[in-house]
Nucleic acid binder design. Structure first.
Length: 201
DNA sequence: CTCTTGATCTTCT
DNA sequence: GAAGATCAAGAGC
């Protein structure tokens, strides 16, 4: 530790009001862009949501497209809960369930701008560039400590907390990343100009 | 900078 | 047996 004296902790941005579960009880295509700029914390660690993607059961890229399975059952439940799945056998990815029970739609959280608990995130991810801490769906779950243990948890109760954005940001949209079906749907949303995206728009 | 590859769990064919 | 809502490391330019 080269640091020889105590520095003031950088002030984290002021949080908006807590998002209630009802926030998610509407079209996934309204919720997804509205999440850009909101703050996601798990046990007090997290940051600003800067990139998301919408998925809906009527479209073949969605896990719910072929009906319920043990993995995706949370997607078929009520809105306002976390759907966590194993990606490529190695990573965890987290979604927020939207609309209504049976609708099987969700928003994949793809990138955060780290604001809270950065030392904890660094320690979980290893020493890295701050821009790489949460710049991908598998990276941010590792940084926040999200695992299958969080599958099915409510989004408005500990250890998860969400806070509304305080100002409306400029939002970019584009095609989703890493899929081979329904590739043309422009259901990826991001904070315009953010340096913390998984990829530029 | 871009391209390739290995890691290895769940679902589907 | 193969593919997939991914990531990091290594080779090459």
């Amino acid at each position: 530790m080269a640091q020889s004296r105590t520095f003031p902790t950088p002030a984290a941005p002021k949080l908006g009001k807590p998002l209630k579960r009802a926030f998610f009880a509407r079209s996934v295509h309204e919720v997804a862009p509205d999440l850009i700029g909101a703050t996601l914390l798990v046990n007090g660690v997290g940051g600003l949501i800067v990139e998301v993607e919408a998925y809906h059961h009527t479209e073949p890229a969605a896990h719910s497209y072929r009906g319920p399975t043990p993995r995706n059952q949370i997607m078929f439940g009520p809105p306002g809960f976390a759907y966590v799945y194993r990606s490529y056998g190695i990573h965890w990815c987290v979604n927020f369930v939207c609309e209504k029970a049976g609708s099987a739609s969700a928003v994949l959280i793809r990138a955060l701008e780290p604001t809270h608990g950065i030392p904890a995130m660094r320690s979980r991810r290893g020493l890295r560039d701050e821009r790489a801490l949460c710049s991908g769906p598998g990276k941010l779950t590792e940084a926040l400590g999200i695992t299958i243990a969080h599958n099915g948890l409510a989004l408005d109760a500990p250890p998860i907390a969400l806070y509304a954005r305080r100002e409306k940001p400029e939002i970019a949209a584009g095609v989703r990343i890493g899929i081979t079906k329904a590739v043309e749907l422009p259901w990826r949303y991001g904070l315009k100009g953010s340096k913390f995206l998984s990829k530029p728009f």
